[in-house]
């Protein structure tokens, strides 16, 4: 199923300045924003905190957007800036001790949890090895299964740029995962059409 961002109609209503419309816009985008913060920020940053910051910026700067059609792209850019800021702070705080909080998963045995965490670490490392522009297209097109056109609109770049970034990102991601022995099977690339 292709993930699609909510309609710009919510943005248009919120830009009219009505408080309840702003609330609705925040609620409609909350899950998407949190998912972006989680997937693009990685385990080193607090995705909930980042999503919270994005919503605050959204409410405070909504009036600066020129048209509702630009809202998704603007919001994605805001996520990108907040995540970059959080990464800088995380880098500064890297000596602070204490594990990242884990949430209990009632269906997982300890062994399964460890295996899942190790597999996730390989993927996080591979994503981390990518430049942010490539990580973004990989998350949008592969993980969220957005079309190339949709990703291009969100990123504010031409479709051709999305395609070329995606091609390089796939290659680098595959190399990193395979070199760390993380791929479950090497069976050739699965083609995802970008249109």
């Amino acid at each position: 199923m292709t993930a699609s961002y909510p309609e710009v109609a919510y943005a248009r209503a919120a830009m009219s300045g009505r408080d309840e419309a702003v609330d609705t816009l925040c609620k409609v985008w909350l899950h998407t924003v949190y998912a972006w913060c989680h997937r693009l920020g990685g385990p080193g940053i607090d995705a909930e905190g980042a999503a919270h910051d994005v919503l605050l910026v959204m409410v405070r700067k909504l009036h600066t957007i020129r048209s509702a059609e630009q809202f998704p792209s603007w919001l994605f850019g805001t996520c990108r800036r907040v995540i970059a800021n959080r990464r800088r702070k995380a880098w500064l705080k890297r000596w602070v001790p204490g594990p990242i909080r884990e949430r209990a998963h009632p269906g997982h045995t300890p062994e399964r949890s460890v295996e899942a965490r190790q597999a996730a670490d390989v993927v996080w490392n591979a994503l981390d090895a990518l430049p942010s522009a490539q990580r973004e297209v990989l998350v949008l097109c592969e993980l969220e299964e957005r079309s190339g056109t949709e990703a291009a609109a969100l990123l504010g770049v031409p479709l051709g740029t999305v395609k070329s970034r995606l091609r390089v990102a796939r290659r680098t991601f595959r190399e990193v995962v395979e070199s760390s022995g993380g791929a479950s099977a090497v069976d050739g690339s699965r083609a995802v059409e970008v249109n």
Partner: peptide, 26 residues
């Protein structure tokens, strides 16, 4: 290697997180 399969090994999104974000935001 199926890249999407690999990406799906990332931890699932915490379904309760948006509620907590909303609470903090409010």
């Amino acid at each position: 290697m199926d890249i999407r399969t690999e990406l799906l090994k990332l931890p699932e999104l915490d379904s309760a997180a948006p509620d907590r974000v909303w609470q903090r935001f409010q």
